[in-house]
Nucleic acid binder design. Structure first.
Length: 106
DNA sequence: GACATGACCCGCG
DNA sequence: CCGCGGGCCATGT
């Protein structure tokens, strides 16, 4: 476990159920200018689903990936999971309600 | 230490 | 709206 990963997971646990956030916002909160770096940490997430890595979507509000996949069964699961928490996406996998986006703050 | 990789982002045409 | 090119930065070889 690296420090970076720890910080990412701690931040994730701050996201309330029924809300989602983006790689960019997370990066902003962690002072990390690369969303890819965030993704690297997420795909290695050893605490799923205790750590809600599924509540992270791309900055354009599209679904993003899950467990290394950008499409397929994994993604379907991610969508269903969010759906069960009250977060809905449209047919193109885009977030429907922008007001559900969680902005980190201290 | 150099090199490659990726659940990404942004500007440009 | 779509594709392309360049940038980003933690990790693993």
């Amino acid at each position: 476990m690296t420090d970076f990963q720890n910080r990412v997971y701690e931040a994730l646990k701050r996201i309330p159920k029924g809300r989602v956030s983006t790689y960019k916002l997370l990066g902003n909160y962690l002072d990390c200018g690369s969303a890819q770096a965030i993704g690297q940490a997420l795909k290695k997430n050893p605490f799923a689903p205790e750590v809600p890595c599924h509540r992270i979507i791309k900055s354009d509000l599209s679904i993003g990936g899950y467990y290394g996949a950008t499409s397929g069964k994994r993604i379907t699961e991610k969508v269903e999971l969010l759906k069960s928490e009250g977060v809905h996406l449209d047919g193109d996998g885009r977030l429907l309600k922008k007001e559900q986006i969680y902005h980190f703050s201290n």
